[in-house]
């Protein structure tokens, strides 16, 4: 009997908690509704598409390929990124560069974002700092899979 009374007390306490949340939040909602600005808001919700969220500086977002000063990609096709990539989403084709100091540059660099798991290993592996994941672009929804296969032009542009 005492045990059950204990349950009953907890039930009442539970509803008091939810009531408190309701009343306090409602208070701030009404204050905001009538135009009084308060530091505390009635809800923790962020109105995402209207108020975009700033991604952290080190957040791993869409890749980009860095360029040399003369506009050529920095990538030298060492394929370390393709090697380390756990989802095998990087494909690079090498071409001969006439400059004997560069020798090798990518004629095609494909990242299949359908497969990419954004682990950032490619960035870690790159010896030339040619690939970075710092664009801050996280809204990578497309209407077709083909649009998510990024080639050299999309990655440098």
């Amino acid at each position: 009997m005492i045990k059950q009374f204990g349950y009953f007390l907890e039930i009442v306490k539970g509803s008091l908690i939810t009531t408190r949340h309701f009343v306090v939040n409602m208070f701030f909602h009404i204050l905001n509704l009538v135009g009084i600005k308060t530091k505390r808001k009635g809800a923790v919700t962020r109105q995402y598409p209207e108020a975009p969220i700033e991604v952290a500086r080190r957040h791993r977002s869409l890749h980009r390929l860095m360029l040399r000063e003369d506009g050529k990609p920095r990538c030298v096709v060492c394929m370390l990124c393709a090697t380390v990539c756990p989802s095998e989403c990087i494909f690079i084709e090498a071409t001969e560069d006439p400059d004997p100091e560069i020798q090798k540059y990518p004629s095609n660099f494909i990242i299949d974002l359908n497969r990419c798991c954004f682990c950032g290993f490619c960035v870690e592996a790159c010896p030339e700092d040619a690939i970075r994941m710092d664009t801050g672009e996280v809204e990578l929804a497309r209407y077709s899979r083909g649009d998510l296969v990024y080639d050299l032009e999309k990655l440098t542009g």
Binding site: T18, H21, F22, N25, M26, H29, A43, T45
Partner: peptide
Amino acid sequence: KESAIMQDRI
């Protein structure tokens, strides 16, 4: 609305 306000949502 009520459930949202109870749960600190909108």
